[in-house]
């Protein structure tokens, strides 16, 4: 599969749990109370705790590298926040390649939640270097396209080994019981 301007990335749905908001805030070393203390957030005019910008940034980065593969390199991530991510909501990240040049793609990203656009942004990503410029493959099987004859076969048989799918994403564990 080649990467072309206009390509749409498959959407990524992210449940906005209290756990995600708090874990993201702490992993980014952001101890602002509005990201973990609902009472304090209310005093400051917010109906609940809300996701911090560093977590949003991390999720946008993940969305891009999930799609283009582990050898893709983020060059720039520029985001603007709108409607906050409150617990109980869901954010759906969508992206569209706006340009491809010299092995670098620009992707416009939107993260929409139940109350509006949580994030709009632009990501510049360097695609894996062994892929010819402007006829680019996603990182799953970059060598395959070198030999067009084999493309179909290889893709059919080699779907699973490389795909970094994560059905055991760290959402389920015993972290459910947020003390309240």
């Amino acid at each position: 599969m080649t990467v072309r301007a206009g390509d749409e990335l498959p959407p990524l749905r992210i449940p906005i749990t209290r756990t995600l908001i708090v874990a993201g805030a702490l992993a980014s070393r952001d101890y602002q109370d509005v990201h973990h203390d609902a009472e304090a957030a209310k005093e400051k005019g917010s109906p609940d705790i809300f996701m911090n910008i560093l977590t949003t940034n991390g999720l946008v980065g993940r969305y891009i590298t999930d799609h283009f593969g582990p050898r893709a390199r983020l060059r720039k991530v520029a985001i603007r926040l709108g409607a906050p991510n409150y617990p109980g909501d869901e954010m759906v990240l969508t992206g569209q390649v706006t340009s491809v040049a010299e092995g670098t793609a620009e992707v416009a990203v939107i993260g929409k939640n139940g109350i509006g656009h949580h994030v709009t942004g632009k990501v510049t990503v360097r695609l894996p270097s062994d892929v010819p410029a402007e006829v680019l493959t996603t990182a799953d099987a970059p060598t395959v396209t070198q030999d067009p004859q084999n493309t179909q076969d290889t893709q059919d048989t080699a779907v699973t080994p490389d795909a970094p799918d994560a059905p055991d994403a760290p959402d389920a564990p015993a972290a459910q019981g947020t003390p309240r």
Binding site: A23, T55, R62
Partner: peptide
């Protein structure tokens, strides 16, 4: 810890 929070398995 960051990757766990973000669900990033890269």
């Amino acid at each position: 810890h960051w990757c766990e929070a973000m669900g990033d398995t890269n």
